[in-house]
């Protein structure tokens, strides 16, 4: 029985690795030959599907979305863990947050379109897209922050309070620094989700392939760019090239953030 189980586990694991490797290999094989300097031109034209504007848009949208969602998310998590009474309403809020993090992104997209694009009259814009995505990643940041706050031992809180520190000081000087690696990985996950998001952005930030002039202009992120290229059907090769670049960027972000987390943890 043990042996069969062990074999099964090995099998499943190798299937996972195989499919992962398969995808990566596929993108590399299909994408690498399609990379050309033209793809990195500053301007997007109908002849040259440059991905630089999309890259810039991605970065702008990510930064704005995070600027909004990180403070709100962290403070909400602090409230939930450190202040809220454990009553039924709190339970309901917790369930709501967990549910929100599982909702398909297209629903956020529709909400963003109705609320930001139409109701607040922002139009298809970087701003509407960023707002929508900040709402989308909020549950993720809240839950990861909450989890890591919960792992901080109560004895540390008591130690700080017993020295006469206030609750606020205890949270910001002791608890939050301890939770930092966890919070950080939540932010990384959020960046990943924003980078990979297309559905929610098509309805809110639009698909204009140029570098946005201001926050009210429409713009497409790399994922949307890829989606557009492949649905148009004319430039699937360029889509593969973009996919390759996107993959490299995400690998890079993961690598860098892992280094940062390691550094934070080591300092303790």
């Amino acid at each position: 029985m043990d042996k069969i189980m062990k074999k099964l586990i090995y099998l499943v694991a190798s299937l996972t690795f195989a499919s992962l490797l398969g995808i990566v290999a596929y993108i590399v094989i299909k994408g690498l030959p399609n990379l050309s300097l033209d793809l990195f031109r500053f301007n997007y034209t109908t002849e040259n599907m440059s991905l630089v504007p999309a890259m810039i848009t991605t970065i702008i949208i990510t930064i704005i979305a995070l600027i909004i969602s990180i403070p709100i998310g962290i403070l909400t998590a602090i409230y939930l863990v450190e202040y809220a009474n454990k009553n039924i309403i709190m339970k309901f809020i917790s369930i709501a947050i967990d549910t929100l993090s599982g909702i398909p992104s297209i629903i956020y997209g529709l909400f963003g379109m109705i609320f930001f694009v139409t109701y607040l009259n922002l139009g298809f814009s970087i701003l509407a897209g960023s707002f929508t995505l900040s709402i989308m990643v909020l549950p993720l940041i809240i839950t990861t922050t909450r989890e890591s706050l919960l792992t901080v031992s109560d004895s540390l809180r008591q130690g700080s309070l017993a020295l006469g520190a206030t609750k606020v000081r205890t949270i910001f000087k002791v608890v939050l620094p301890c939770a930092l690696p966890g919070i950080f990985s939540g932010i990384i996950l959020s960046i990943g989700r924003i980078f990979g998001e297309s559905a929610a952005l098509i309805y809110t930030a639009g698909t204009v392939a140029q570098i946005p002039e201001n926050l009210f202009s429409s713009g497409r992120t790399l994922s949307v760019h890829m989606f557009a290229l492949s649905t148009e059907g004319l430039h699937t090769d360029k889509a593969y090239g973009t996919a390759f670049v996107l993959m490299i960027i995400i690998l890079l972000i993961n690598f860098l953030s892992n280094q940062v987390i390691k550094k934070i943890s080591k300092e303790k």
């Binding site: 031992s153 004895s155 008591q158 130690g159 006469g164 301890c178």
Partner: peptide, 21 residues
């Protein structure tokens, strides 16, 4: 005042709980 009280009455706990610093 509880802050003042805890300044004058220190406490050490069962498990050593140094802050991670």
């Amino acid at each position: 005042d509880v802050t003042q009280l805890r300044k004058e009455i220190g406490m050490v706990f069962q498990n050593p709980n140094p802050f991670p610093m």
